[in-house]
Simulated assay, not measured.
Amino acid sequence: MAELSEIVDKYMTKTTGLKKFCDRCLRTQRWNGNVVLMVVDAAFDSIGLNYFNSIVPKVVEFEEAFVESGVVKNLKELSELPHERVKNIWANERSWGVANSVASYLYEFGQGRGLSDREALRKWAGDAPLEDWKQDPVGRIRGIGLTTYQYLRMMGGVDTAMPDKIVKRVVEEILDKAEVEMPTSGDFEFIKTVDKIAEISGYRPIEICWMTWLVQSEGDKIRMEKYRDVLDRI
Rank of each mutant, 00 (worst) to 15 (best):
M1W: 07
A2N: 08
S5A: 15
V8Q: 00
M12Q: 03
T13F: 12
T13G: 00
K14Y: 13
G17N: 04
G17L: 14
L18T: 05
K20Y: 07
C22K: 00
R30D: 12
R30M: 14
N32F: 07
G33S: 06
N34M: 05
L37D: 04
V39E: 05
V40K: 00
A42P: 04
S46Y: 00
I47R: 10
I47H: 04
G48R: 01
G48M: 05
I55K: 01
I55R: 05
P57V: 02
P57A: 11
V59I: 10
A65D: 11
A65P: 00
F66S: 01
K73N: 10
K73M: 14
K76L: 15
L78H: 10
L81T: 06
E84T: 13
V86S: 01
I89K: 03
N92Q: 13
E93W: 06
E93H: 05
G97R: 09
G97D: 13
V98T: 02
S101P: 00
A103F: 12
Y105H: 15
F109S: 11
Q111Y: 09
L115Y: 12
S116L: 12
R118W: 02
R122W: 03
K123W: 01
A125F: 01
G126R: 02
L130M: 13
K134G: 01
Q135S: 14
V138P: 04
T147R: 06
T147F: 08
Q150W: 07
L152D: 11
G156S: 07
G157K: 08
V158N: 04
T160G: 05
A161E: 01
M162E: 12
D164C: 02
D164E: 14
K165P: 07
I166F: 15
I166S: 01
R169K: 15
L175P: 09
V180R: 08
T193W: 01
A198M: 05
Y203M: 10
R204V: 01
I208G: 03
C209Y: 15
M211Y: 09
M211T: 13
M211L: 12
W213V: 06
L214R: 02
L214A: 00
S217P: 03
E218D: 10
G219N: 12
G219H: 13
D220G: 03
Y227F: 15
R228S: 14
D229H: 08
I234T: 10
